[in-house]
C-alpha cells in the first residue's frame, strides 16, 4: 500500500485548510498575468530579461560532484538569476493563510526557496524566476484573499489591526484599494506607483473567508474544538519537555 503523506491532525475546516496549504492542493481562484505579477513585485521592468548574478551553470563548467549530479538545479539557479523576495502580510481577521502556512507551502511544494516566518509577515527569498513561481501560486489560489492579504515588501503594519469599514486590510502606504467590487493594486510591494492598475480580483465574503481560513479563532472555529489537534500539541510539548530534561 502506497504511503500517503500526512500533514496536520484534526477534523475541523481549519485543520483541513491547513492540510491543503501544506500539500499544495489548493483551489485556483483567479488569474494574474506574468506582466502584472512583475509590476507588483517591482524587481524589474515587465517584459525585460531576468538580470543575472552569474553565467548560466551550463557555461560555467561545474566541478565534479556527486551531489550536483544528483540534484537538478532549479530554473533560476540554472540561469544564474539574482536572489529576490516576495513578502506577504495576512490579516488576523480570517485571512486564508498565516505566515507559518505560507512557509510550509513554500518549503514543502517548491525547491530552492528560503521562507522566512515572522509574526505578521512572511517572506520568501529565491532565485527571481523561482520566487515568481511561488508568488504566482500563492496569489492565484485560495491561499490569498486580495482584501485580507497583501503583497508588502516594506511597511507591513496592518495584520493585527481591525479591518477598515470596506473590509480591506489597513495599509498605510495605500498599495491596494477596493474599486467597485474588485481589489486593485496601484503601487508595487514597497509603495512605488506603477504604470497601470493591477486587478487582483474580488475579495472573499466574510462567510467564505471564515470557511477558507487556516486561523483558529473563538468567533469561528476554536482551537479547543479539535481534540485531535489538542492531543498532538500536548504530545509534542510533552515529548519536547522530556527530551530537553537533562538532570546533571
Amino acid at each position: 500500500m502506497a504511503y500517503e503523506l500526512q500533514y496536520y491532525p484534526g477534523a475541523t475546516s481549519v485543520a483541513e485548510n491547513r492540510r491543503k496549504h501544506m500539500s499544495g492542493k489548493v483551489e485556483k481562484l483567479r488569474d494574474i498575468s506574468d506582466e502584472d505579477l512583475t509590476l507588483v513585485l517591482g524587481h524589474r521592468a515587465p517584459g525585460s530579461d531576468y538580470p543575472s548574478t552569474h553565467p548560466p551553470l551550463a557555461e560555467m563548467g561545474e566541478p565534479e560532484c556527486s551531489m550536483r549530479e544528483l540534484v537538478e538545479p532549479t530554473p533560476g539557479a540554472k540561469a544564474g538569476d539574482r536572489i529576490r523576495y516576495v513578502q506577504f502580510a495576512d490579516s488576523m481577521y480570517n485571512a486564508p493563510a498565516t505566515p507559518y502556512f505560507r512557509s510550509y507551502n513554500a518549503a514543502i511544494c517548491f525547491r530552492g526557496v528560503d521562507p522566512g516566518t515572522l509574526s505578521g509577515r512572511q517572506v520568501v527569498e529565491a532565485r527571481e524566476r523561482d520566487m515568481e513561481e511561488v508568488a504566482k501560486f500563492q496569489i492565484e489560489t485560495e491561499m490569498t484573499c486580495p482584501a485580507l492579504a497583501g503583497l508588502r515588501g516594506a511597511t507591513v503594519h496592518g495584520h493585527s489591526l481591525r479591518l477598515p469599514e470596506d473590509g480591506v486590510m489597513f495599509d498605510m502606504l495605500d498599495r491596494c484599494r477596493k474599486e467597485g467590487d474588485v481589489i486593485i493594486m496601484h503601487k508595487d510591494q514597497v509603495g512605488r506607483p506603477i504604470d497601470k492598475k493591477v486587478n487582483l480580483g474580488k475579495p472573499m465574503s466574510e462567510e467564505e473567508a471564515a470557511k477558507r481560513t487556516t486561523i483558529y479563532r473563538v468567533d469561528n472555529v476554536s482551537f479547543r474544538d479539535d481534540p485531535e489537534v489538542i492531543e498532538w500539541v500536548h504530545r509534542v510539548f510533552d515529548q519536547r519537555t522530556k527530551y530537553g530534561f537533562k538532570p546533571e
Binding site: T155, P164, L173, R177, G191
Partner: peptide, 22 residues
C-alpha cells in the same frame, strides 16, 4: 488610530508621496 504618513517612511520607496485616501 494607526498613523498615516505623508511620505513612505522607509524601504526602497522612501520619500515617495503616499496620498492615502483616509
Amino acid at each position: 488610530g494607526p498613523g498615516l504618513p505623508q511620505t513612505v517612511p522607509y524601504g526602497p520607496a522612501k520619500g515617495e508621496p503616499v496620498h492615502h485616501p483616509a
